[in-house]
Design a binder for these strands. Structure first.
Length: 497
RNA sequence: GGUCGGAUGGCCGAGUGGCUAGGCUCAGCUCUGCAAAAGCUGCUACAGCGGUUCGAAUCCGCUUUCGACCUCCA
């Protein structure tokens, strides 16, 4: 595939991607609700769409990536509700929503920078767009598709479904929704059970509240994304992303609201990532099986055998296609860690290799294979972002690179052009598009010189065949996490864990 | 209950009607003072039962089984 195709959840088909404005792409991704700490499951969408965003830019699009922060609504923080149940509490004893929102927003940003996810161009907050949300609700009411009851406003789904394909995105049948027996908040106020809130009246004790034409209240969950995406990306934009679990009701509701407000569907391509599971079950708050990111990075969780570096997690996620479920296990993460170390080491070696400039390949068969492996990466990305296949090809190339270092393969086996292509492919795909970084930061010069000294002493010992001393140095260093390697050419290299 | 999606080798995971990804593990070999790393070689799977086809893991049907959504959820 020479052009980007993506799986559109709305049509359930792979479609060629064509942006609305040539050269520009608008991407909206549902961001975090900052009432708690992010967990492993959350890493999937933000890493997935970070790659989407990077790839679009690689293709030459100027991308506006918008990802919201949900900081309004009916909040709880680990059992602490955003409702002051005891009215007499002193100010500092009460939960201050802004304090909680700030705390978890900071944690979120910190974690995803460790994942090397690029910051969105715009990261709008729901509380910062109350006016836009109210305007949109008024618009929907004026068009006759929403109604007010006791200070709350609901969207009239039944009326909408009469003229529009409600349920298409999530494969839902309205009749089923109307018959649901669930007891939901505000159910008796709604004309139909399938109706959803655009605005909720705030009871007196509710802390988060804003003035509106319908009294004091707070916005419904779905309206923020519609209001903010249209504000920053336009009434119709290119790609809307998020987890599969948001298809219904969140995204379905977004489509309905925006369709009424703007007269047409809001999004051209809906993309949904699949879930991360643990023991076969979705990792989620309500299942009580989450591993928080801070726990994952520190290894401090009963289910974790060790700490996992953010890059290992990123690699592990990208080794699987984004629309497949991905099951967590220590074994899988550990396999990813080894694999990633090996791949990155090959990349590091490649950067140090230099080609003589020969225009002819000494091994045309290998040369051709390398060209194919490199060029296929673009096809794989274009085929609905098949990062798993891209990585597979990079792994095909790793033995070629390692062989060049080990002497099993001549660098001139490849033509100068192919060698340049090889270098460029690794840089472009591994670093720029998949967004991978080395596991350890650059070492300090001081550590470097200390190790050089030890290596020198050890080399002397080896010359005298004093293997007891040389092995002692190597073993003691290994205990502290520094692995010495005697290279073929007599030099010594090291890696630090 | 309704809707949808899976079931791939020891493990994780791509994938397509025929040319049998990739990673990790494991075994053997090469290199090496010994290691480590690296290279080479080996391990050949697609839940079950039918059907379509010259040919199916890949298409169709049924069965078993797991999961997601239907409520806040990435």
């Amino acid at each position: 595939m020479s052009e980007l195709h993506v799986h559109n959840s709305f049509t359930r088909q792979k479609e060629k991607f064509t942006s609305i404005t040539p050269g520009y792409a608008g991407l909206y991704v549902c961001g975090p609700t900052v009432s708690g700490e992010s967990h492993l499951g959350h890493s999937r969408p933000y890493i997935t769409f970070d790659v989407v965003q990077r790839y679009l830019r690689h293709l030459g699009y100027k991308v506006r990536y918008v990802r919201n922060i949900t900081d309004a609504g009916h909040f709880e923080e680990e059992g602490r509700e955003a409702i002051d149940k005891v009215g007499e509490k002193a100010k500092l004893e009460k939960m201050e929503p802004m304090e909680m929102v700030q705390k978890y927003t900071n944690l979120f940003h910190h974690a995803f920078r460790l994942f090397n996810c690029e910051d969105p161009a715009i990261e709008p907050t729901a509380t910062g767009h109350i006016v836009e949300q109210i305007n949109m609700i008024e618009d929907i009411i004026s068009k006759g598709y929403a109604y007010e009851v006791n200070g709350s406003v609901y969207f009239d789904v039944k009326k909408y479904a009469a003229s529009y394909p409600y349920g298409k995105l999530s494969g839902r049948v309205l009749e089923d929704q109307l018959e649901t027996t669930r007891e939901l908040d505000g159910q008796d106020e709604k004309r139909n059970k399938a109706d959803f809130a655009l605005w909720k009246n705030a009871p007196p004790e509710h802390i988060m509240r804003w003035k509106s034409p319908w009294g004091e209240g707070f916005p419904g969950w779905h309206i923020e994304c519609s209001a903010m995406s249209s504000k920053y990306l336009g009434e119709t934009f290119d790609i809307h992303g998020g987890g599969m679990d948001l298809q219904f009701p969140h995204h379905e509701s977004e489509i309905a609201q925006s369709t009424i407000a703007h007269g047409h569907a809001p999004v051209n391509y809906w993309m949904h990532n699949n879930m991360i599971t643990i023991n076969g079950k979705k990792m989620g708050k309500s299942y009580n099986n989450v591993i928080k990111l801070s726990e994952l990075f520190s290894g401090n969780h009963p289910l974790l055998e060790q700490a996992y570096h953010p890059m290992v997690v990123r690699f592990y996620i990208l080794q699987t296609h984004y629309r497949s479920t991905l099951d967590f296990s220590n074994e899988a993460l550990q396999a990813s860690e080894r694999a990633f170390r090996r791949l990155w080491e090959a990349y590091a070696i490649l950067q140090k290799l230099a080609h003589s400039g020969n225009t002819d390949a000494e091994d045309t068969e290998l040369d051709q294979k390398v060209i194919t492996w490199c060029n296929e990466c673009a096809d794989f990305m274009n085929d609905d972002l098949n990062t798993a296949k891209v990585l597979a090809n990079l792994f095909e190339l790793a033995p070629v690179i390692n062989g060049m270092k080990g002497g099993q393969v001549s660098i001139e086996a490849l033509s100068a052009d192919t060698f340049a292509l090889l270098k460029n492919t690794f840089k472009t795909y591994l670093e720029d598009i998949l967004g991978m970084q080395p596991l350890q930061a650059e070492q300090s010069g001081k550590l470097d010189s200390v190790l050089s000294l030890l290596i020198e002493i050890r080399t002397d010992a080896k010359k005298r065949k004093d293997f007891a001393t040389s092995d002692q140095i190597r073993n003691k260093l290994a205990e502290t996490g520094v692995q010495l390697k005697d290279e073929k050419d007599g030099t010594v290299s090291y890696t630090i864990e």
